[in-house]
Nucleic acid binder design. Structure first.
Lengths: 257, 257
DNA sequence: TTCTACAAAAATATCTACATTTTTTATTAT
DNA sequence: ATAATAAAAAATGTAGATATTTTTGTAGAA
């Protein structure tokens, strides 16, 4: 099956004019710049899978990947194995790689896990967050509430999504645990394809947007009042709320080629 | 620096006489057998890192890895990237791979995250576990309490560790969330090098062993009584308890070569 | 001397092109 | 239809080429 929709195209190693004026250490410079082929492939492919350029279950033919991304088989395999670890791709030895399937079962599990984890982390943030954390949360909440003066619907979607993510990120950043944040990030990546389905429904409905605004306001209120019980409960519900919408939109798994 | 201690040696593809008598589907057979080179490398290297065959910070020279595990650079890179995802290895582009450092900071973070997560999962298990779950927990608890009639100290260590792990696994299996279990497993892998330090101290001290027995008994009691609050609290404390011991044993990070 | 800057050499990491193995598809005979 | 076989496609692995980093050595300046 041919991939659908717009897809990433490899950039001929964006010269990335590393305006290295001064005050940048050797290490910082190097780490920021030239990634290896495997890393490039990983990023492009991950984006394309999340954005739906490939369908769940699609076979990821090495010949196609090589020519499309202009990357050799070795680095491409490296990228693919990483995506397997991320659960966005599945592999069977000697039979190659496929885009991970989506299912109602997985939807339920991911969101259940996310809700519990995000609630846990939020509770810790309430206990551990300092004034800077409060300020960040408030600031991001404000920016999110002001996503109106935007141009196209497409832009609206992207801006709202970006700020919504930042808002939640600001909240959880207070938890003080890098490991919990890593796990949360991983789960969020796994949820991303499902989230995309919900996003369109929500951002383009004044009703839904207003509802979210309300939830966020209550959340901020509980957070700043350091009401742990209320904050965790609100967060739990907030994360679970998209499930019914997504369930309706979930593509029926057609036995992919 | 030369790797220390006993280390895995590649097996010349264990012919693995696949006694495929009957009733085994094609798929089941294939998936169980021949893993590719990258997978083999991943398993061996992961074991060696966890078992301390390499020191934290050790450089993982491609030339050494290739010759020692008798695996080419391509598959080896694939394995290494996966270990980077597991946080057991770090990578810097064009400068290769190193065994991840260990630190008191990370110890604290991992155990904090583990304690919260295991408590969360235990709470869910109490709510969601069925009779089979109860039976499994009870059974594993019993087997763990009977780790006496063993031979060598080395065997004692291994048997106790294995059964202790199974006991905890039986508990969390009741939570009903594959994703939460995955995250827990990942965190457990990351904790493993720290746990090993604690294990020797515990298994070879009658005092410590008795204490653990006590904790486990209380835990089982709370679980079977479906006392969620008590079970989660006990579990939280149980997971955190090794920290002081490990902290003392933690090797001082010597700037590795 | 002692330090610094530079250049060359060596070591290392990474990638590519091709060889090999395995699976899948097509074809033919039963 | 079914099973066996051959051909094609695909996945995986290897060896060697290329690019990058690190080390070493040297000459000049302080």
């Amino acid at each position: 099956m041919e991939p659908t929709g717009k897809m990433n195209t490899p950039v001929t190693n964006s010269t990335h004019s590393n305006g290295n004026a001064a005050g940048v250490t050797e290490k910082e410079m190097v780490e920021g710049s030239k990634a290896n082929q495997a890393t490039i492939a990983y990023r492009l492919l991950k984006q394309d899978i999340i954005n739906g350029a490939y369908q769940p279950g699609d076979k990821l033919l090495m010949s196609h990947l090589k020519s499309h991304y202009e990357i050799g088989a070795g680095p491409m395999r490296e990228a693919l194995s990483q995506l397997v670890a991320d659960r966005l791709v599945t592999a069977i030895s000697q039979r190659g790689f496929r885009v991970a399937e989506m299912s109602e079962e997985e939807l339920t599990d991911i969101y259940d896990a996310r809700a519990h984890l995000e609630a846990l982390i939020t509770g810790l943030a309430v206990e551990r967050g300092d004034e800077d954390w409060e300020a960040e949360v408030l600031g991001e909440a404000h920016k999110l509430s002001r996503v109106n003066e935007v141009n196209t619907p497409e832009e609206m979607l992207q801006v709202w999504d970006r700020r919504h993510k930042s808002f939640h990120q600001a909240i959880v950043n207070g938890c003080g645990s890098p490991k919990l944040l890593e796990m949360r990030a991983s789960l969020l990546d796994q949820a991303e394809r499902y989230r995309q389905l919900w996003l369109k429904q929500t951002v383009f409905s004044q009703n839904a947007l207003e509802e979210k605004r309300q939830e966020h306001a209550e959340l901020v209120d509980a957070l700043l009042n350091r009401d742990k019980a209320k904050a965790t409960e609100l967060m739990y519900g907030h994360i679970l709320s998209p499930i019914p919408i997504i369930r309706k939109l979930l593509p029926q798994s057609i036995p992919a080629n």
